[in-house]
């Protein structure tokens, strides 16, 4: 798989609501479209997105064929402690792409 853009505030106050934005590079091929040869292009989509914050799942989503290429997912969580956010995208072949970001909470 390819690369992702992640926007997490580097610093935050304890208890503050923070917005996290992720943009994943992925074709999200539905599996319903015929290619130039008339054959269906095999499905290639991200099926699951999970974000953990210091090991605890704070957001997860299931993705389906109607979702755009390069899906942009934005959500909020509460800054509890300094640590790492781990983002993982799993596609329908079972391959997982993982990226991390760190946050400092004062």
């Amino acid at each position: 798989m390819a690369r992702a853009l992640i926007n997490v505030p580097q610093k935050s106050k304890r208890g503050e609501i923070i917005e996290i934005k992720t943009l994943m590079s992925h074709p999200m091929e539905t599996g319903f479209r015929p290619g130039m040869d008339g054959q269906l292009i095999p499905r290639d989509i991200i099926e699951k997105f999970v974000c953990t914050y210091n090991g605890e799942v704070v957001f997860s989503a299931q993705l389906h064929p109607a979702i755009t290429a390069n899906p942009f997912i934005s959500f909020t969580t509460i800054a509890t402690d300094s640590g790492t956010l781990v983002f993982s995208w799993t596609d329908n072949k079972g391959e997982t792409q993982v990226q991390t970001a760190s946050i400092q909470v004062e």
């Binding site: 390819a2 853009l5 934005k21 942009f72």
Partner: peptide, 13 residues
């Protein structure tokens, strides 16, 4: 927003 612009994925590549 460079972190929301999907074109930036290509720029990074």
């Amino acid at each position: 927003d460079d972190l929301a612009n999907p074109g930036m994925l290509s720029v990074l590549e």
